[in-house]
């Protein structure tokens, strides 16, 4: 547990979370959400939750981004907000 690293990554997590919900393009939102998940995975790895971090790296940053892209592919990329 290194608190400086933890603090920096927590800040990055919060900013990528804000970016994921404010960006207008849904495909960019999906990719930013993938980045958010990967930062979160790093955060958990720093806290010593290695199994949780491993799961998040495969599930959150991998498969759920693919699901988002697949859903955007069959709907629309445009968003009003």
């Amino acid at each position: 547990m290194i608190w400086e690293l933890d603090f920096i990554i927590l800040t990055l997590v919060i900013f990528s979370g804000i970016a994921a919900i404010t960006v207008k393009d849904l495909l960019s939102a999906a990719i930013l959400f993938g980045a958010y998940s990967f930062m979160m995975c790093l955060l958990w790895a720093i806290m010593g939750a290695v199994d949780v971090a491993f799961t998040e790296a495969t599930v959150g940053a991998g498969v759920s981004t693919v699901f988002f892209v697949a859903a955007v592919f069959h709907t629309t990329r445009d968003s009003k907000d």
């Binding site: 199994d51 971090a53 799961t55 495969t58 599930v59 498969v63 693919v66």
Partner: peptide, 17 residues
């Protein structure tokens, strides 16, 4: 080591995807 059914299963599925 870190890992188990959930992680391995998702990686196996991701290979097919």
């Amino acid at each position: 080591s870190p890992g188990g059914g959930f992680q391995g299963g998702v990686i196996l599925g991701a290979a097919v995807i």
